[in-house]
């Protein structure tokens, strides 16, 4: 059940992860091998078993809605790759320019 090239590219696109040709080939091999080994899971009878998302689950964690100080904009923006005034600078979302 080796993954196809197209499947690898599809997953990479979902993850917005650029891959070069060598990476596509390598991940095709490695992911196929890993998934083949993880297929042992299919042998476990899980009929009627509830899935566990958190092993130590807390339910309905609530807190009061209190106003507290936020970090100032200059500190928030200190790590920004591109900024303009008090804003993060982003690339155009609609169209290229």
């Amino acid at each position: 059940m080796k993954l196809s090239r197209e499947e690898v590219l599809h997953i990479a696109r979902l993850a917005r992860l650029g891959l070069d040709e060598a990476e596509v080939d390598k991940f095709r091999e490695q992911l196929s091998e890993l998934l083949e080994s993880f297929a042992v899971l299919q042998r476990v009878d899980t009929t009627g078993i509830t899935p566990t998302a958190h092993s130590i689950a807390l339910e309905n964690v609530v807190r009061s809605d209190q106003v507290a100080a936020s970090l100032p904009p200059d500190q928030i923006l200190a790590n920004a790759p591109q900024k303009e005034g008090d804003f993060f600078r982003v690339r155009p979302v609609l169209g290229d320019r």
Binding site: L41, Q42, V44, T46, I49, T50, P51, T52, A53, S55
Partner: peptide
Amino acid sequence: KAQKVRTLIR
């Protein structure tokens, strides 16, 4: 499936 197996392990 993995999360159900997680329940069994726990």
